[in-house]
Design a protein around this nucleic acid. Structure first.
Length: 564
RNA sequence: GCGCCUGUAGCUCAGCUGGAUAGAGCAACUGCCUUCUAAGCAGUGGGCCAGGAGUUCGAAUCUCUUCAGGCGCGCCA
């Protein structure tokens, strides 16, 4: 994998280290302790391609003015055999590096060589990491929170794959415990009501009122009739749950598939009970002395593990809580399946769960730092500039399905990843469906389509993209072309940063920037010009942009139209 | 009351783990199609980075604090 950014930075680091060594050897600097040399790309391009603040950082140790230190260092740098063209001191003591154009042109070669792989980095070293996301309750339809979580989780998983991790996408099915109990009761009530009238059976107070429950039972009756009126409540609830749950899970799968999400594992909570892992977990915690009994329940001393207060593990009716199952689940992820890292994506309404979950990890002997929980802030849906809680079509709260029907997968996936997980997100339906400059998805896709159009036009005239060794890249010298080359160089690093910070939103912003630079270029420079050499160079540049855009959009699973 | 998140242009948000003159996109205004897709581009205006204190060569960024908003604090999940 070629990472020009990395190469450049390591060259600079080496130059500085050599500079310091020599200066120290010659007595021009005292012995200094360097923790980390930061090399960054300055915001202002007149400050060069790279800059370092090392001179300012060692001011105290060196007991000299930063600009003096900078000068000393520069005097001891040997620039031969490097890409560095020029070094300058600037401002309070920055050292600015100007790179030769050859370095920048190298990106075209890199893209040609790596093609669909360009942008990949290996910071993960094949580490096994799980991303668990959505995990919506199978008792009803998915909501806007699930929609955001889906886009975030799936794109994050992709980013991690591109960064060299071995990623598993997982959906946790809550098919056990209290809510399934409620689910069963609700189904039973609807079944009897449908066959014998509304008044024949009282609907449970805390039951699920959604229409989907009724629908399930209508389907069930259509197939099986009324024979379940005769059997025991226990038996028929089990039968209803088994039927409706499978139906609901199939529907979840289908809708997520439509959303571009395919999971590697659908993990059922019930298997934790079947395989005795919940009990194993409880026994383990007991053994380690983290539990006590109070009022007939078994408690976890979570307060001693960093949480706010203690938590019930097993209710006084003998049934373990959701929390206990979740501990067993995470124990399964780490201990039974050997994941190096586990990333959970939760809605902000679950943030109270974080501290006790981390505490529980410690209690079961897993490193809590290996469990990373992304807390995603809630989504506000806007329509006509106003908060829209209800779907236009159904009058009920807006589901993932409604959203996809209205805006399509591309817009939803892209727009949900425009914001960082931690920031509250306003999802504007009018923007999502707008086919204009307001809509960032179209803006990016349009750039790609424009490029394809150029390629088509020239191909019709018999002009094709040539391999890099036949092209005089030095002809790429306008401001717009240089800016584009620099942006292309950045992709591997952007992916690395997105993976490290767990923020796929960096990538959507990257691709928006690239599209903007392309559109500027398009208006400032023509590809199809009489100067053949220039045309071939620009054609190659444009084709390289196309490859990068396609790579990134494929990664995000946003479609890449060649015509619009 | 306690805890988590957020506060940057009229609106929606970036700001790359502390850098140089705080940036985009919408919205407003002015221009740009006989030449590769105007779903585009160029330009103009717009800011007490919520307030205050601290840390240091240097703070939108880190710490503390006040204020405002969101969310949570169950033998629910």
């Amino acid at each position: 994998m070629i990472n020009l950014m990395e190469q450049a930075k390591s060259q600079i680091t080496q130059l500085i280290n050599e500079g310091i060594e020599k200066a120290v050897a010659e007595g021009q600097l005292p012995q200094v302790q360097i923790v980390d040399i930061t090399v960054e790309v300055p915001r202002e391009k007149q400050h060069g391609d790279f800059a370092t603040n090392i001179a300012m950082q060692i001011t105290k140790q060196a007991k000299k003015a930063p600009r003096m230190i900078a000068e000393t260092l520069i005097n001891h740098m040997n620039l031969t055999d490097t890409y560095v063209e020029k070094v300058e001191i600037a401002g309070p003591g920055f050292i600015n590096f100007y790179f030769k154009k050859e370095w920048l042109y190298g990106v075209i070669t890199a893209i040609e060589q790596e093609g669909t792989e360009y942008g990949k980095v290996n910071i993960g070293n094949g580490e096994k990491v799980m991303v668990e996301f959505v995990s919506a309750n199978p008792t009803g339809p998915m909501h806007m929170g699930n929609a955001r979580g889906g886009a975030l989780g799936d794109c994050l998983a992709s980013v991690l794959e591109w960064a060299g991790y071995d990623v598993t996408r997982e959906f946790y099915i809550n098919d056990a415990g209290n809510q399934i109990e409620k689910f069963g009761k609700s189904l039973e009530a609807r079944y009897i009501q449908l066959l014998k009238g509304e008044d024949a059976f009282e609907f449970p107070e805390d039951g699920y009122h959604g229409d989907d429950i009724k629908e399930r039972m209508q389907e069930f009756i259509a197939g099986e009739g009324d024979k379940y009126l005769e059997i025991s409540s226990e038996e028929r609830k089990d039968a209803f749950v088994a039927y409706a749950l499978q139906k609901n899970i199939d529907k979840l799968k289908e809708e997520l598939e439509l959303y571009g999400i395919t999971y590697d594992v659908w993990f059922k909570e019930s298997t934790l009970y079947e395989n005795n892992e919940v009990q194993e977990t409880i026994d383990y915690l007991k053994e380690k002395g983290y539990t006590y009994e109070k009022e007939g329940a078994i408690w976890l001393e979570a307060s001693k593990l960093g949480a706010e207060k203690d938590e019930v593990l097993v209710r006084n009716n003998g049934i373990p809580t959701y929390f206990t199952a979740d501990i067993a689940y995470h124990r399964n992820k780490f201990v039974k399946r050997g994941f190096d890292r586990v990333i959970d994506i939760w809605g902000a309404d679950h943030h109270g769960h974080v501290a006790r979950m981390k505490g529980a990890m410690e209690a079961i002997g897993c490193n809590p730092d290996k469990l990373e929980i992304i807390i995603m802030q809630l989504v506000r849906l806007l329509r006509n500039g106003e908060v829209a809680r209800m779907s236009k079509r159904t009058g009920k709260s807006v589901t993932l399905r409604d959203l996809l029907d209205e805006t399509g997968t591309d817009a939803a996936r892209f727009l949900f990843n425009m914001r960082q997980a931690g920031s509250h997100l306003d999802f504007d339906l009018d923007v999502a469906v707008a086919q204009s400059d307001e809509n960032p998805v179209f803006y990016v896709q349009y750039a790609h389509a424009r490029i394809c159009s150029i390629l088509r036009k020239l191909e019709e005239e018999g002009v094709e993209v040539q391999s890099v060794n036949k092209i005089n890249l030095a002809r790429l010298e306008t401001e717009e072309e240089i800016a584009l080359l620099k942006k292309l160089v950045q992709l591997p690093e952007e992916i690395a940063i997105a993976a490290l910070t767990l923020e796929p939103s960096k990538i959507t912003r990257y691709i928006l920037d690239l599209a903007a630079l392309f559109h500027s270029f398009y208006n400032a420079c023509r590809v199809k010009v009489d100067d053949k050499e220039l045309m071939m160079a620009r054609l190659k540049l444009v084709d390289s942009i196309r490859i990068v855009m396609k790579n990134v959009l494929n990664m995000l699973k946003v479609s890449v139209p060649e015509k619009m």
